[in-house]
Design a protein around this nucleic acid. Structure first.
Length: 262
DNA sequence: ATGGTGGCTGGGCCA
């Protein structure tokens, strides 16, 4: 079974690329981030025509996450808990879960944080702490369940996950509290199943649209698939499709793919 | 090529 995650930066503007990509690469389950639309605006036909079911949560032009599956889509949860943190009193659509082909799949869009002194930064840390708490409970309840925590984590856990640490001095994504929040989820039992198959340095999943970042190889590794022990032991390979970052109409993120033994 | 973001929306925010 092939699962993947991809921040598409608007599903409506990227629908042709997304449909073509999942079809071309025989993707069974795709976690999507930043759909940037309401649920009634989701371009479903192009995907259902290819044999995919989907679940989506979106309330406006911000955030929005979805899961596509052609191996079943059951037990959809539209957040990881009733206590999921709020920002500006809004429960932002940043997490959706579903069971697809026996895998508990989560599509996660971790808050960006904006700046170290911004309220959004604490929101990010709170959000990650809640996710860790939820993840611990899922594993405690069912230690043998294959769970995939996938998405745009907006964290570069290691120095070589950015092209130049000096540039990121004093900025989000690389701060110690963010890295600690990420490590806490790893320590809870969810390991990065992609990095062993895609060693750095210079291996990224995101390149800013500005300043010719992509051709200049100025990227960041911020999109991850963290797997529970039962998921991790089934991983046969993983890769980042940087080809998909090329050309006109590309998202600023590349898809991240994981192949699982059946 | 002496420059160089994109999306949603409708000016400004967000990333």
């Amino acid at each position: 079974m092939r699962i993947a995650t991809w921040n598409v930066n608007s599903i409506r503007s990227r629908i042709d690329r997304v449909a073509s990509w999942v079809d071309r690469h025989d993707v069974d389950v795709l976690a999507i981030q930043e759909t940037k639309c309401r649920e009634d605006q989701f371009p479903a036909l192009e995907l259902t025509a290819l044999g995919y079911e989907y679940a989506h949560v979106g309330i406006n032009q911000w955030n929005g996450v979805a899961i596509l599956s052609r191996v079943g889509l059951e037990d959809v949860e539209r957040s990881f808990g009733v206590d999921q943190p709020l920002f500006d009193d809004v429960l932002e659509p940043r997490a959706i879960g579903a069971t697809c082909g026996g895998v508990r799949m989560w599509s996660l869009y971790v808050p960006n944080g904006r700046d170290l002194d911004h309220a959004h930064y604490q929101y990010k840390l709170d959000w990650l702490a809640r996710l860790r708490s939820a993840g611990e409970q899922w594993l405690a309840k069912n230690p043998d369940l294959p769970i995939a925590l996938t998405g745009d984590w907006n964290i570069a856990p290691q120095d070589d996950d950015v092209w130049d640490m000096a540039v990121f001095e004093g900025r989000t994504h690389v701060s110690e509290p963010e890295r600690a929040a990420f490590r806490a989820i790893v320590d809870a039992g969810f390991s990065d199943v992609v990095r062993p198959h895609t060693p750095g340095p210079g291996v990224y999943t995101y390149w800013d649209y500005t300043q010719l970042s992509f051709p200049k190889k100025k990227g960041m590794r911020i999109d991850f698939v963290l797997g529970s022990p039962a998921l991790a032991e089934r991983v046969e390979g993983a890769w980042i499709d940087r080809e998909e970052r090329k050309g006109k109409g590309a998202s600023d993120h590349a898809p991240v793919v994981v192949d699982l033994a059946d």
